[in-house]
Write a protein that binds this DNA or RNA. Structure first.
Lengths: 150, 150
DNA sequence: TCTACATTCTCTAGTCACTAGAGGATCAAG
DNA sequence: CTTGATCCTCTAGTGACTAGAGAATGTAGA
């Protein structure tokens, strides 16, 4: 039986995040010591590793919930799991395409302009002038994503 | 002078979002009719288009604030604007690389398994088995990003 | 003029997946 | 017996909006 800190080290998931997952019902409430501390079994560690892996691959918690539900009932057909993974793959594809378009325009924009006054700045100019822009900007690429390591 | 609805149609930014931007100080509080309705001038529409364009390019509101501040003071040197765009370009490059790696692994995982029971599902199996995984999953790719059209 | 419907107003709360911090209890080592 | 690490619960904050309540105002047709 492991404390939450030990589980955190093994899975690479931060302690508050493990508690958060419990609150979200992704893992069941674990056993407790007499003083109320959480005690985890190996199965919990495996489940949390599954969650971590899926999160690292960008699956949302609702997707992970479905996936876990499915693995809790191995008798059910697994078409749903494929569907989730396929949908996610399509998402990723779309985002890559979007970011490529974004990069093209940013490269065009971000050529240094020798530190002149902002009045001649190409960045501001390019962003003010929507007509000069190549792609469809109907949809935003969402969060910039600085990367977090749990 | 345009109502908020007309400005929304012209810029493609939703009405509540325009009010939100006002609250955030990205645009100044507009004139009002006798009954308190917002009235926008063309300059406001241009400023909002700037914001929309920058958001579509993935700039955060804090970046946009700097950019707007810069364009409000055209006498200042514009190195800062270049810096913002350059930093953003680096982010975009990193994210593309990350998503490519992600796609490789997802493609490997998401091969359909002929609708068998979940017990033999490759998706679940692959997610449970962290050791079989290629890349470093130290960092999560953040939000999936379904794309929103304002 | 009346009625119906659209639009606007302000305000609060919800989204997602956590993260940070307060304030207190318990544990292991020296 | 003290020190410091770890644990507990709880609330609130993040970013960039979105949704909804409840009320006032505007506009078009009968």
């Amino acid at each position: 039986m492991l404390t939450i800190g030990a589980v955190s080290k093994r899975t690479g998931i931060k302690v508050p995040t493990i508690r958060f997952y419990e609150g979200e019902g992704l893992i069941k409430a674990p056993a407790r010591t007499g003083s109320g501390r959480r005690l985890y079994a190996d199965a919990d560690v495996r489940r949390l590793s599954f969650i971590r892996h899926a999160r690292a691959l960008g699956f949302e918690l609702s997707d992970i919930r479905s996936l876990l539900d499915l693995s809790d009932h191995p008798d059910r057909p697994c078409g749903q799991a494929d569907q989730i993974a396929q949908r996610h793959l399509n998402d990723v594809d779309a985002r890559i395409a979007q970011l490529r378009a974004l990069k093209r325009e940013l490269s065009r924009i971000a050529a240094p302009c020798a530190g002149g006054p902002a009045a001649q700045c190409r960045v501001i100019e390019a962003l003010a002038d929507h007509s000069a822009c190549a792609g469809d900007h109907a949809r935003a690429p969402e969060r910039t994503g600085k990367g977090n390591a749990n």
